[in-house]
Design a protein around this nucleic acid. Structure first.
Lengths: 217, 217
DNA sequence: CTCCTAACGGGACCCGAGTCCCGTTAGGCG
DNA sequence: CGCCTAACGGGACTCGGGTCCCGTTAGGAG
């Protein structure tokens, strides 16, 4: 793939083997990235993952088709970058002082995200991509690890207050809130309403209090 | 697409507009269907959803490429049929007399299914397909509706025994068992072990007992 | 057993996603 | 404020997934 370091060219393209955009990430490169990610998000929300065409994304972004293929390589690569971009701007947790309230806030946030036309479409697409592409899977795992880490402290604090057993696994509790929402989204046709979010938070809360997520078994 | 009923041909193909295989479902047609579904399952387990090629499936099945396209039309159509085929041979629930035990049995079954190379690959593929194809989504919803209906009675019986509140929604409880397993499979890299299955059953059980799934709110 | 035709099989063909080549634009260091 | 070259842009080209055409095989009614 990459040419040897001794290969001689005239004025064009030494081919350093580096991913384009990493050496000169400023100015134009940044603008192109933003335009492409934005266009990709639009296309995804409108036409769905299955009909996502990189040529169309390039056209919408006012960018050369070659550029998109060179920088992102494939649909899954673009999705991974899109997800990473979204991760940077996701809302932080707000402390409330009550575990049930915090889990409800989390469930509501997840529900809003999955219900949102743009973000929901993106998540569905990334999940689909992750089932058959290692790169997308890695991006997805990173994303959820970060999100779970953001919310885990509320369980730790609840444990300190004695709301749940001291050896409760915080991450398990946070995951238990999201799980039913994703499951419903993917395996049933019923829309995700607020009642589903509250139910998910409540179930995770009750299970945690009953000790279902204790690490010591 | 379909020619009008008045169109005249010599000896070939009246084109009734019906899906091939519905008029003469016996003998050869049935053999072809079985061979193709089997080959598709193999290919899916080996190469994954992304690299599933209908021409390759046809070759493996010893069947003409045209036949596969004519009968199933697309990858998602084939997946939908494959899922329907699997639904017919899934294991029935076994009565145990203890809700926790039954939920654990269910969780173990789900875990085994998702861990199995062939079935697991199929489920991942169908989930991916369902996010962008209405036909696959419908097949998936049907499948889970049937599976949930199969297991819901154990919650009804538990309610009669007083193990959980009388107005507990049985389907919610059953779904709560599967949800964390699917969530873990899709959003984390960690493998689905038996501990995860037991935890899922336990969490659903505790939440149900605490009244998290009561319909009356 | 015979006939009608549903369903299959082979192979030519088509089309568009992805690649390649090479000229042009602009980031950023000296 | 130039120079070097990273990064972009356009357009020709490839190649394999999906379609079409038409001849062949075999299900099943009578």
């Amino acid at each position: 793939m990459r040419s040897g370091p001794g290969s001689r060219r005239k004025t064009t393209a030494p081919d350093t083997g580096a991913v384009p955009g990493t050496v000169r990430p400023g100015g134009r490169t940044a603008r192109v990235r933003e335009a492409v990610l934005h266009a990709a998000g639009d296309a995804l929300a409108e036409r769905g993952f299955a009909h996502l065409d990189l040529a169309e994304v390039a056209r919408r972004a006012g960018v050369g088709k070659t550029t998109v293929y060179r920088r992102w390589g494939s649909v899954t690569g673009l999705l991974a970058d899109l997800l990473e971009d979204m991760a940077e701007q996701s809302e932080p947790r707000i402390e409330v002082g009550s575990l049930l309230r915090e889990l409800e806030a989390n469930a509501t946030l997840v529900r809003r995200t999955l219900t949102d036309p743009r973000q929901g479409a993106l998540f569905k697409a990334v999940i689909a991509a992750a089932t058959c592409d290692a790169l997308a899977a890695e991006a997805l795992h990173q994303f959820y690890a970060a999100r779970v880490a953001e919310w885990a402290p509320c369980v730790v604090q609840a444990a300190e207050r004695g709301e749940v057993p001291a050896d409760t696994d915080p991450e398990q509790v946070v995951r238990a809130v999201s799980a039913p929402l994703y499951y419903q989204l993917l395996t049933t046709g019923t829309p995700l309403d607020q009642a589903a979010a509250e139910r998910a938070a409540r179930a995770a809360y009750d299970a945690a209090r009953a000790g279902a997520f204790r690490t010591g078994r």
